Amino acid sequence: MKRKLKFIFLYFGIFLFTLWGAFQLFFWIDTQEEKKQVIKDTYLERLSPSQEKLLQEGDIILRRGYGFFSDIIAQRLNDDTFDVTHSGILYRKNNQWWVIHSLSSDVSPIDGMQEQPLGTFLKYSTPKKILIVRPKHITPTEGKEVVKKALYYLHQKIPFDHIGTIDDPSALYCSELIYQILDNDLHLISFPTEKKERKDTFYTMKTLYDPSFFEIIINTYPEK
């Protein structure tokens, strides 16, 4: 009996290892395809100089990324107008625009909180699929407070939230970072408090361009 159980555990372990390997291989292939697309589109303009002049610290940048998982997010977490898949917070560093955001180690060398020059962040965006949004009625001073909180989570090296537990800042996915700062930390936006409605609000990209909460400052999507 003990020998039989050992074989069962052995085969189960091999199965899990094979499944994990296949999962990692899929991510690797998807990442390689993304890199090819990034190189192909490198010299295509994402934001014009005149558009960049409209930016304020604390603005939210939304992009449509490349790859299979971006396709899933684009289809399932958006409406018929936009198909954004990733978000970050804009701020000024060394007189340049930078983005603070959170990415999974499945698609990034760093798991969780990280920062990038805006130009680098934009390279991973599908051209003509970018939104810049701003919390309604926010002041420039409040925008700087948003940046301070984002820098705090960055310096704390908060990991990516792979499980999707909202209202827990010990791990944050990209849009959760924004909800955490604007609602729980700074109380600049009051999102729904009822459990199911709150989850429905946080488990979608649509909230980030919902006119009830945000104003669209820049929209590079082609007019339909």
Results as ranks from 00 to 15, higher is better:
L25Q: 05
S48P: 02
I61N: 02
L16P: 00
R64W: 01
I39P: 09
D30H: 10
I73F: 05
N94G: 07
S104P: 10
E57I: 05
F27W: 13
S87A: 15
F69T: 12
N78D: 03
T42L: 15
Y66H: 03
P49V: 05
I14D: 07
E45P: 09
E57C: 04
T18M: 11
S50R: 11
E33K: 13
T31D: 12
L103W: 12
S48K: 13
Q75M: 11
F68N: 06
F17W: 14
V99E: 02
V84M: 05
L55I: 11
A74T: 02
F17Q: 11
Y66S: 06
S48G: 00
R92C: 03
F26K: 08
I61Y: 03
L19G: 04
G88F: 02
W98C: 02
D41G: 00
D80P: 00
N95G: 07
L77M: 14
Q24D: 07
T42Q: 15
D71R: 09
Q37P: 01
L19M: 13
F68E: 03
I61R: 03
K36W: 06
I14Y: 12
I29S: 03
D59A: 04
D111H: 05
R76K: 11
E34L: 12
A74P: 08
G21R: 09
S104N: 06
I72A: 09
Q37E: 15
H101R: 02
L77N: 07
L16A: 12
R63S: 04
Q56M: 13
L55G: 02
I89E: 08
Q32W: 08
D111C: 08
D79L: 01
F69H: 00
V99Q: 02
I110Q: 11
F26P: 00
I73S: 03
L19E: 03
D106E: 12
I73T: 08
G67V: 04
T85R: 05
F27C: 10
D41M: 11
T31H: 05
D41L: 11
P109S: 08
I61V: 12
G65Q: 10
I39S: 13
D71G: 15
F12P: 01
T42M: 14
F15V: 08
L16W: 08
Q37Y: 04
G88P: 01
E45R: 09
K35F: 10
S105C: 01
D111E: 08
K93I: 00
T81I: 11
F27K: 10
L103T: 14
F68T: 14
K40E: 15
W20L: 15
D111K: 06
I100D: 08
D83S: 14
I60A: 07
P109K: 12
S50P: 02
Y91A: 03
E34A: 12
P49Y: 07
L54H: 03
T42R: 15
R76G: 12
E34Y: 00
Q56W: 10
Q37L: 15
F69W: 12
D30N: 15
I73E: 07
R76L: 13
L47G: 07
